[in-house]
Design a protein around this nucleic acid. Structure first.
Lengths: 240, 240
DNA sequence: CGTACGGTTGATACATATCAATATGCGTGG
DNA sequence: CCACGCATATTGATATGTATCAACCGTACG
């Protein structure tokens, strides 16, 4: 559960809910997808729900960082590009995750919808104004950054020192832990290319590694996007 | 210049300086190495100066994160280890840099002295207490985390998608920018092994890449630790 | 002067990338 | 409902960048 989402749903922040479709939609959507019962109308009060279609750009690298975003449904990829088109996906954002949160006035990444997704867009200035006289919110925003840092640092180890097998294993375990669906099973929202660009590999290597894990009976692949973790121990072993 | 160092030297934080050798040493040391003229006695009031010898451990991975550290002189490496000994250096800390700053109660890295170095050790609890009723300090601490995140994210792109040459070029440019010595020249405080573990390469590849850059007249290597950037344009070209 | 450590250079191996072909799934339109 | 076409995924053959193994060099230091 994202700390900022928690902060935004504290009693202190509850405002009279906006009437109308938008507010209602946010509230229901959030409850539907996370099962939390906390009031979330505040999100509607602070931001606007927007829908993005598959592969559409949410913001561009170097664009003014006027908003931060909270994922309600779907998945978002946050990435950097090199001049010649090489791409590194820094992170995937799932429901409850926040992205686009910067200290700098401009985004240092682009963000794109992995699949059809809904996000809440909150004005940076509004959050900042609130954080200025609310230590708890400020702390939540800091914790948000710290959490992102922690994940990024873990990923550094993955990209710097792990083999393809280990990378894929780490990725699968991570996705399984984050998407709270059926235990031992994940439905990947992203393509092989996205996975490759996240793990610093090629699409072919990702594919081969997955089939290798399947041959070794560590996972099963009922379909290309669905992964059954048959031998979690083996996966964790690869995770070092 | 580290934001936290700045925050700690704001007028609001200036206390009557402690008398005695320690306080004096901090103040002079900091001024010597950074050239800043801002009062820094507050650091002595908050922390203790400690010296670490080459390769000694400052704190271990998973140790209680009771302190944060500010580098006064020398260099520190912050790293993670894999079970079989593979090592990833997350970052090098130079004078003015802060390390060991965590949200979690335990360090997620180890920190070691790259060479003889002096650091100020500040109790976490003291900083936290101060930050609780000081929005400006709290903001500085957040900015610190955000800056670290930004650097880590850039490094992710390096490890995920850049070639050995590009990694080394990026590293040299970064070190040159950070160590404010003679323009176009860097003295590297760390060994080839350290560089390799930072860039996700082997010691041999780092060495070969450097000699290759030297053959191409992009750099000169008067000694193994001294690097002259002869063709910054070429290096920046490799930086994409 | 010799030893040790860090660095360089060379020969070879190997993991992953690249190039290429084939297969699978999926939406669209007949 | 099926047929088509496109996008995505898999598989195969080969290339290549970097790792590994090994020898050698140079500098610092006792």
């Amino acid at each position: 559960m994202s700390t900022i989402a928690a902060a935004l749903t504290q009693k202190a922040y509850v405002q009279p809910p906006l009437s109308g479709a938008v507010a209602g939609r946010v509230s229901r959507a959030w409850q539907d997808e996370t099962g939390t019962r906390q009031p979330t109308d505040i999100l509607a009060g602070l931001g606007v729900v927007t829908t993005f279609s598959r592969n559409s750009e949410i913001f561009a690298e170097d664009a003014p960082a006027d908003h931060i975003f909270l994922v309600l449904s779907g998945a978002v990829r946050v990435c950097k590009l090199l001049g010649d088109g090489r791409r590194q996906i820094e992170t995937f954002c799932l429901p409850g995750d926040v992205f686009g949160w910067e200290t700098a006035p401009r985004h240092r990444f682009s963000a794109e919808a992995v699949n059809e997704c809904r996000v809440v867009r909150v004005k940076r200035s509004i959050l900042f104004a609130r954080a200025a006289d609310d230590a708890e919110l400020a702390h939540a925003l800091w914790a948000l950054t710290a959490g992102e840092l922690s994940r990024t640092q873990n990923h550094l180890l993955v990209l710097g020192r792990k083999t393809a097998q280990e990378r894929v294993a780490t990725f699968l375990l991570d996705m399984a832990a984050r998407s709270a669906g059926t235990a031992g099973e994940v439905t990947l929202p992203m393509s092989r290319q996205d996975i490759a660009d996240y793990l610093g590999l090629t699409i072919e290597t990702v594919s081969r590694t997955l089939t290798h894990l399947e041959d070794a009976a560590v996972i099963a692949l009922p379909s290309s996007r669905r992964v059954v973790l048959k031998d979690g121990g083996a996966l964790r072993g690869l995770n070092s």
